[in-house]
């Protein structure tokens, strides 16, 4: 077992892990941060996306020991300080960008990374950025719309409620 220490959502976190322990497992099982989900084992679905040192990564495809010393951000740390939804989260609710909610944490974390890189993405930008995030419920329409809305763009011309 190896001791790892990291900052998770701004707070110090540590634990003893095996070499094979994945960051996603450490977050879920050791820290109880179960908002990071595991939806596949081939690094494709993106339900586990978190930020490590400010970059989106798949927490199921990174060893916990490799996050030693890193700053990790998960879905649990995304809301505003007063507990209200942040701009992206609020846009997902306003535009019905989630149904079962399982892919949602990864979607929100990917969206946050996209908007940091590209504050006014086009529809195509958003769709391509989500190559590594699979949603089975929404058909993506409202996810794309929500992310564009979160970037401050007018999405009223996009069809539907």
């Amino acid at each position: 077992m190896t001791q790892v220490k990291m900052t998770v959502n701004g707070k110090d976190a540590s634990g003893d892990v095996e070499g094979r322990t994945l960051l996603a497992q450490f977050l879920r099982d050791d820290l109880g941060l179960t908002g990071t989900h595991i939806g596949c084992d081939t690094s494709q679905c993106g339900a586990c996306v978190v930020h490590v040192n400010g970059e989106a990564v798949k927490a199921c495809t990174m060893l916990a020991v490799e996050a030693d010393g890193a700053e990790v951000a998960t879905i649990e740390g995304q809301a505003n300080a007063d507990g209200s939804l942040n701009v992206i989260q609020q846009a997902f609710q306003d535009h019905h960008g989630l149904q079962c909610g399982f892919c949602t944490p990864g979607m929100v974390m990917s969206a946050a990374a996209l908007l940091k890189e590209n504050p006014k993405p086009t529809e195509a930008d958003v769709r391509h950025y989500l190559d590594g995030n699979i949603c089975r419920c929404t058909g993506y329409h409202n996810i794309v719309k929500a992310i564009m809305a979160a970037s401050g763009q007018d999405v009223s011309a996009i069809a539907a409620e």
């Binding site: 179960t34 990071t36 995304q78 939804l85 989260q89 306003d94 929100v108």
Partner: peptide, 23 residues
């Protein structure tokens, strides 16, 4: 009415309670 979904808040904040979250 297109009422916003109340369940969204827990899903969007990582507070959903899926079966694998039960230990």
């Amino acid at each position: 009415a297109s009422s916003k979904r109340r369940e969204d808040v827990r899903f969007l904040t990582g507070n959903g309670n899926y079966t694998d979250d039960i230990n």
